[in-house]
Write a protein that binds this DNA or RNA. Structure first.
Lengths: 202, 202
DNA sequence: GCCTATCTGACAGCGACTGCCAAGTGTGAT
DNA sequence: ATCACACTTGGCAGTCGCTGTCAGATAGGC
């Protein structure tokens, strides 16, 4: 029973790892189902744990926070964002680079419906919105040095302008995704994003 | 339910009202002191109640939430914002109107040091940031109809552009206030705001 | 002085979350 | 196969923010 086939990711797939991944997936699916069925705030950790067949303690070991049960790739977002932007050609402007980053993050979603479900939950739950905005703000701070190199020199004021530009890009993403959800997923988010940015910079 | 005279004339309010206000003030001051002394997350409700000389239950009756212990005028912000913007002359542009609203909100702070202390606490505490961003998002949604009238017609997409413009203004306020705090309160926030907006709208 | 309206504190309880400890299970070496 | 070790799991108690409830104190009007 040794030397199991290694997956393409090169991960040493032990039985533990497989079990872990299975349990993790089960928890995640149960949580998402219950959230969409009865709402985020109305779903307790106890219920998710019970229906997923694990103890609360184990659930919290897999996902440190109730919020983490939504964003599989919570941290992946930040990474993809940074990677994409830093990979942009040197002569690309700030706005194009940020646009590319936003597009890359949006492309992470599995399917259109999946994304819509996720977004809808996010925009309709105050506590989730708060957590998401906070996390996003941290991403923005991480982007500061990366974006600064692409802006006109003479920043002067501790990168206030850089912060503003980054925050504006995300503000447009917000406006776009909110509108997208309000329209029940009609059209492309990136088109809305472009519209928003045009309205702002027009 | 009786709305006795609450005018600022110092009219003979009832003993209850006076006691209430006194307790409220005591709690507020104790909370702010402890927050700045040892941090927001490190200060428990039990401690504030103890040092303020009231029970936890009473504290929660005065302020429904731990966050409420910071924003005296939490809801006042939203009101001032709306009022100011709606009072702008009809021929004023969107950006000028929003600028006026931002300025009015900033003018609400008692003193410069008070504001700096408040902002510093806000920007250095993740949970507070999250709550603030969420509350602000609600303000933005409330502003939608007000601002829409000042924008070029043919919005089309459910006010995506309007949302984007409003969100951008607040994004600039964010960038400005963060930079202001980073600079230990040097300069004027509104100047930073103007710089930010200029950088965005190039 | 009495009755009512309001306020207060104590207690119990919920939900998210953590630390701790004992028991179970896979893994590698013998 | 066996043994020791690493890892994982579940239960229990406890913290913290927050809410419902209920008895008792206090101010107000009569």
């Amino acid at each position: 029973m040794k030397q199991e086939a290694k997956s393409a990711t090169g991960a040493p797939t032990t039985l533990w790892d497989r079990t872990r991944q299975l349990a993790s997936q089960e928890i995640l699916e149960t949580a998402l189902r219950l959230f969409t069925e009865q709402g985020y705030d109305e779903t307790t950790i106890a219920q998710i744990a019970r229906e997923a067949g694990v103890s609360q303690r184990t659930l919290f070991r897999y996902f440190g926070t109730k919020e983490d049960l939504l964003g599989d790739g919570q941290d992946r977002f930040g990474q993809v964002l940074m990677d994409t932007i830093s990979e942009q050609p040197a002569d690309a402007g700030v706005w194009e680079s940020l646009r590319a980053g936003v597009a890359a993050v949006l492309a992470l979603h599995d399917s259109r419906e999946h994304a819509l479900e996720r977004f809808r939950l996010l925009h309709n739950t105050a506590s989730l919105r708060a957590g998401w905005l906070e996390k996003r703000l941290r991403f923005q701070e991480n982007l500061l040095p990366l974006v600064e190199t692409r802006m006109d020199a003479a920043t002067g004021n501790e990168g206030a302008k850089v912060r503003a530009v980054i925050a504006t890009a995300f503000a447009c993403l917000d406006a776009a995704s909110m509108t997208w959800v309000a329209n029940d997923g009609k059209g492309e988010i990136m088109d809305l994003y472009d519209e928003c940015l045009a309205a702002v910079r027009g």
